[in-house]
Simulated scan of single mutants.
Amino acid sequence: MCTAADIATSHYLPTADCSNANTPSVAKTISPCTSSNEDDSSAMSISWRLTLSFIEAGYDVDTQILGTGQYGIVRKCINRSTGQQCAVKSIRKDNPAVKSGAISREITLLLLMKHRSITQLVDVFEDAEYVHIVTDLCTGGELYDKIVEKSSSNSANCGTSCFTECEAASIIKQILNAVSYMHSQDVVHRDLKPENILFETKDENSPIKIIDFGLAREHTEQIPMNNIVGTPYYIAPEVLRRKYNKSCDLWSVGVIAYILLCGYPPFNGRDNNETHRLILKGLFYFPSEEWKGVSREARDFICRLLVMDPRKRMTAEQALNHPWINNRRIAESRISKGSMIKEREEP
């Protein structure tokens, strides 16, 4: 169990030099976060220069919905000039769930993110009803769907595991590298979950990318965050207590690691309220049937992330140096070298 074209648009354009072809056509100016209210739009100052344009003039947007983000729908689009395939998230501006400044904050944070395992901003458009955020396209599907597929397949074949430890550790390592980068930039994601992790391609060993910064924000350690945001299965206990910092992302990584190895979440209530109560208790188990073949290192890795006290929880850097991630990388390197030697020895 795992667990219209006829509307004139305002295209966000940079106020600075646009000579770099790799720079999205969006400009930003960020001021220090001085407000204790994390949803106060004054906490992040953004200046835009607007010119009228049509998203349809630049992109051919598919009508098929690929997925849903925190605040909008995601579709495929193609740049009419270059042929580049992208994804576009369309956010309805009058959606009551979209708080003041949230869209601008998401755009600004995406501009900051320059990491191979994080989705990259390509373009931004605004019309009378929507803001359209264009990013690079991942064609391999969600990690969530892969979990469901593997769990169903293993169950049908009387297996008990979801991903192998090598597969799970490889995915978690990529997530941790991205989280380490985000945290070094004083950015916290706050909604890490398999639905927000995509495979770049359909290849067996495809890299992953973290998407959807709709709940992300800039944060320093001086003032704790206090808004309860996130997805029930993956939310950290201190978030539910309304006093938390960037360590909440590491709790979510621990939950993802647990699910990758067995196919179901460690805190699994009948509804959101019960799930929250289980998280606040912090008790979870490794049932023998599903976990009998899982290494002690993997269990220790999870236990060091699903720690109630965020001060005692591993950081992203510490997690990357845990034996389950670090030693496995060495072992995989040895296996790869051994295979290469064997190939050379064969006639």
Rank of each mutant, 00 (worst) to 15 (best):
G140S: 02
S153W: 14
I171V: 10
C158Q: 06
S170A: 08
S155K: 14
T160F: 09
S155M: 09
I171A: 05
S153H: 15
I171R: 06
A169Q: 06
T160G: 01
S170P: 00
S152V: 09
S152I: 10
S153Y: 14
K146G: 00
L143R: 08
C166G: 13
V148R: 14
E167Y: 03
S151V: 11
K146H: 14
T164R: 14
I147L: 05
E142G: 00
K146A: 12
C166T: 13
T139E: 07
A169K: 07
C158W: 07
T160A: 05
L137E: 02
S155G: 07
G140C: 02
E149S: 12
A169W: 04
T164S: 15
G159P: 06
C166E: 15
G159A: 09
D145Y: 04
A168D: 09
G159Y: 12
V148L: 10
C166W: 13
N154H: 15
S151P: 00
E165G: 00
F163E: 05
K146W: 12
G140P: 05
T164P: 03
A168F: 08
T164M: 07
C162K: 11
T164Y: 11
Y144V: 00
A156W: 14
S151A: 14
S152Y: 12
S155H: 14
N157H: 14
Y144K: 02
E142Y: 11
S170C: 05
A156H: 15
T164A: 07
F163M: 02
E149R: 13
K150C: 02
C162H: 11
L143Y: 09
A156S: 12
L137I: 03
E165C: 01
C162T: 06
E167F: 05
C158G: 03
N154A: 11
D136N: 10
D136C: 09
K146V: 01
I147M: 03
D145A: 10
T160W: 07
G140T: 02
I171Y: 07
F163G: 04
N154T: 05
K150G: 01
G140Q: 07
Y144Q: 03
V148Y: 03
N154P: 03
I147R: 04
G159L: 13
T160C: 07
L143G: 03
G140W: 06
C138R: 03
C162P: 01
D136V: 01
S152M: 14
F163H: 07
K150I: 12
E142W: 11
G140M: 03
C158T: 01
S152T: 12
C162E: 01
C166Y: 15
Y144R: 08
A156Y: 15
K146F: 11
L143H: 10
E149F: 11
S170I: 00
E149D: 11
E165D: 04
K146Q: 13
Y144A: 02
G141L: 11
C162N: 10
A169C: 05
T139R: 05
S153M: 09
S161D: 05
C166H: 13
E165Q: 04
D136R: 09
G159T: 03
T164Q: 04
